[in-house]
Design a protein around this nucleic acid. Structure first.
Lengths: 201, 201
DNA sequence: CGTCTATTTGAATGTACTCAAAAGCGGTGG
DNA sequence: CCACCGCTTTTGAGTACATTCAAATAGACG
């Protein structure tokens, strides 16, 4: 039941619900296990659940008209991953979600969430705060994409999530910051060379 | 009192609050008038209010380290514009908001919103839905930025908001889609030439 | 060890940027 | 009504950065 505890802790980071409400919510959802490369969601289908990652790591990505994949979000323990557009509006998802490692998640259907919101409206605040956090992250990312160089975006990303370097393939990071894997490779090399020459001088 | 009516209608598009709650909410906020080029918010200050645009038009933009401005959002009648990051977290805003025309807005402070949420928790849902809509829009935009050409982004933007072409300067649109004004000018010319030659053939 | 995938490197190409200048447009005052 | 001013848009030329395609190298895993 340790998955459920992680979930409880996640709620308590944001709101102080009644014990009853928390129990109810923590009992919802379905624990699911995924192996590396399993898909939690396939682009074009409707997202029927929101995934709360208990352990492991996933990526959410969009595959464009030219079959190029663009990573939109990574998800580790204690993160929530979902194509919220699809989930809340019932339209086909613009994203796929794929496990990058062995991953355990708790899946919440729309009904689960409706149920808790109807019974314990205190959770409206929880979901609003989650939404807010997701929005803010997106906003920050957009600013970065518009006003920073690829190198700056890379440095900022890995300084904010040092996990990524060790757990995620480099081409996935390249995709996240919006450049080709070759470009990221070159950028890293340029950084190393710059560092060497500046140390010598 | 027509400003307030627009606000009521906006609420009713999303939730069915008690009459009491709606009256309370519709009475909140302060009507404010801005002239062209007036700033509703200056980057670096804390956003003390969320603006509900009653008439006119504004842009929210980020000014980067090189003093380049990047338009993040436009706002017309019946839209909400705010640096939500700053507003909800109390940190200095990463955006400025500027009136592009004579503009009337209703301004809601954080206290206003806290008050209505405390008294009428039904409004949690309203703000969650707003947040959701804002998030979804951001998500769509990010996908576009990563996977579409500048030309496609331009075409999609003006087909979605035909208002823009007539009411907003071209360089503001260029900034929104993330390219220089020169680049947009060239793209438009290329489109016209393509059209001419395809008509002739 | 061999296979599969990820990363690196190279070369040619493309797209958008910067800087600079010209042309277009709208409003104001003489 | 015209001349001028300020601002936007257009055009040109040179440059920077990332892309694509292709090939070589390096790592991971069975």
């Amino acid at each position: 039941m340790t998955e459920r505890d992680l979930l409880r802790a996640n709620v308590l980071k944001r709101i102080q619900p009644s014990e009853e409400g928390l129990d109810y919510f923590a009992g919802l959802g379905k624990v699911q296990h995924y192996r590396k490369r399993d898909k939690l969601l396939v682009q074009g289908e409707v997202a029927r659940f929101e995934a709360f990652i208990v352990s492991g790591c996933v990526r959410m990505y969009h595959s464009d008209a030219r079959q190029h994949e663009h990573n939109m979000q990574f998800g580790f323990e204690d993160w929530r991953v979902c194509d919220l557009v699809s989930f809340y509006s019932g339209t086909p998802a613009h994203h796929s979600i794929e496990a990058l490692e062995e991953t355990t998640a708790i899946l919440f259907t729309h009904d689960d969430i409706d149920n808790v919101l109807t019974r314990y409206p205190e959770f409206e605040r929880y979901f609003r705060l989650l939404m807010q956090a997701a929005y803010l992250a997106g906003q920050e990312r957009m600013i970065g994409a518009l006003s920073q160089s690829a190198e700056q975006r890379y440095l900022e990303l890995i300084s904010r999530f040092p996990l990524l370097e060790s757990r995620v393939a480099q081409h996935h990071i390249a995709s996240y910051i919006g450049i080709s894997p070759e470009a990221l490779s070159r950028i890293k090399r340029a950084m190393i060379i710059r560092e060497r020459t500046s140390l010598k001088s």
